[in-house]
């Protein structure tokens, strides 16, 4: 297989009440004591006007906000940009909420607005809707961020013409602990895409 070179043209992360873009701290919030308020703070900081945001579950909010930070300064994102996301806890944060609503047969009111978020790939649906991305989606569940698999899978998408660019990364939420990292992969950029480089940026 002829291997073209691909690049990490941007990256961002949300961890420990901070938001980073390309390695630089963009936003910090030491005040909020819950994830919902923290996410709302980032939403306000980014000056977003997107009522659908408030309907998302917390996992989607995190992935959505990270994608907004990542593409903030881009003129437009190509419709063929694929999404390759992964995490450890799937949608368990919301799964537990749905389970709570059906735990008691005498008080059994499952909510459609909760149930729809009991699938981790909904994050990619939300990002696709916002940015009109009509492209490849795949959501993988692994014990920890698998930079090798994610980069190889992303490469093959671009290499076979299935996508022009890839937004890949890790969006995990479990019992209020979150860890979010997204990278924009394309044919142009300064940082060459290797599994080591992707892993380094994730661990920054």
């Amino acid at each position: 297989m002829i291997k073209e070179k691909y690049y990490i043209s941007g990256f961002c992360s949300i961890k420990e009440k901070k938001v980073f873009k390309n390695g630089n701290q963009l936003y910090v919030d030491s005040e909020s004591d819950n994830l919902k308020d923290f996410a709302k703070g980032i939403y306000k900081y980014l000056e977003l006007k997107y009522p659908k945001f408030h309907k998302m579950d917390e996992l989607c909010k995190l992935g959505f906000l990270a994608s907004e930070v990542l593409i903030k300064d881009m003129k437009e994102v190509d419709q063929d940009t694929a999404l390759v996301l992964s995490n450890k806890s799937s949608s368990l944060d919301t799964d537990r909420k749905h389970q709570e609503s059906i735990q008691d047969r005498e008080d059994f009111y499952p909510s459609p607005a909760v149930f729809v978020y009991t699938l981790p790939n909904i994050i990619m649906g939300e990002i696709s809707i916002k940015n009109k991305l009509k492209s490849e989606n795949a959501f993988f569940v692994t014990e920890s961020f698998d930079a090798e698999f994610v980069s190889r899978y992303s490469e093959i998408l671009i290499n076979t013409g299935k996508a022009s660019n890839v937004i890949c990364g890790w969006v995990d939420l479990d019992n209020d602990k979150y860890d979010v990292f997204l990278a924009f992969l394309s044919k142009k950029g300064k940082i060459e895409l290797t599994k080591e480089e992707l892993n380094n940026l994730y661990n920054q």
């Binding site: 009522p51 009111y109 499952p110 459609p112 607005a113």
Partner: peptide, 17 residues
Amino acid sequence: LGLDSIDALELIVLLEK
């Protein structure tokens, strides 16, 4: 208000609950 199909389903739950 711009509600959608999930909101409609949610209102059905609200009526019952």
